[in-house]
Amino acid sequence: MTTETRLTIPGNPHAVHEALRGLAEGALSGLAEAERNTAQIVLAEVLNNIVEHAYAEQGGGIDLLLWVEAGGLRCVVTDRGAPMPSGRLPKGRSPHPGDLPQGGFGWFLIRSLARDLRYRRAEGRNELSFCLPS
């Protein structure tokens, strides 16, 4: 991936599914396999959270901007949904495997794999920026 990749998708699970498949076969295809896998996991969790929480399954546009920088793949994801509760990113504590949890892994996975996470709420938009180390 030599230049930046920009795309806008509708905020629903099917569009997220198609966008990730497209990125894996397109813009991310030049990355090393482990890096591409990590990017897919983190982007899936970030996008699913926007669909489920920021847009509360009512839909809305999501903008993605990706580029390779020193140290990894920089991702900036923007939506016009509800702000993060208390204006901060969730801590993402790991659910206990023995409890057989069926959810609550999203932010744990994002925080485990992404670096330099930054969240900003401005002009009715959520902007999440992070780096996926190479």
């Binding site: 990730l20 482990a34 897919q40 899936a44 057989l100 949890p101 069926q102 959810g103 892994f105």
Partner: peptide
């Protein structure tokens, strides 16, 4: 590829199946 929703679904199936066992095979990276 499997995300946390997919993981949750596999755990849900494990619970549906109990006390029988759900085992997994041939996981991709």
């Amino acid at each position: 590829f499997l995300d946390s929703s997919g993981l949750g679904a596999v755990v849900a199936v494990m619970k549906l199946l109990a006390p029988r066992k759900l085992e997994l095979a041939a996981l991709s990276p």
